[in-house]
Amino acid sequence: MPKVHIESALYERARKAADAIGYSSLEEFVAHCIENELKKLNIEEAEKHVTNQLRGLGYIE
């Protein structure tokens, strides 16, 4: 499973927040945060638009 490095202070803040909110683990909290940010950025949607357009034009399979 991939790992990411974060500053110790941020790690502690995240751990406390995860406890306080009621997440079962820090991993669950971090995954939820990342999911939310990705939704905001709409990256997957953008990727789909680009892929569909390039495929429609015949430039990718």
Binding site: I43, A46, Q53
Partner: peptide, 12 residues
């Protein structure tokens, strides 16, 4: 496709 959505997607 919708031009506005596609423009944003291409920018990204």
């Amino acid at each position: 496709a919708n031009r506005h959505e596609l423009k944003q997607a291409f920018l990204w």
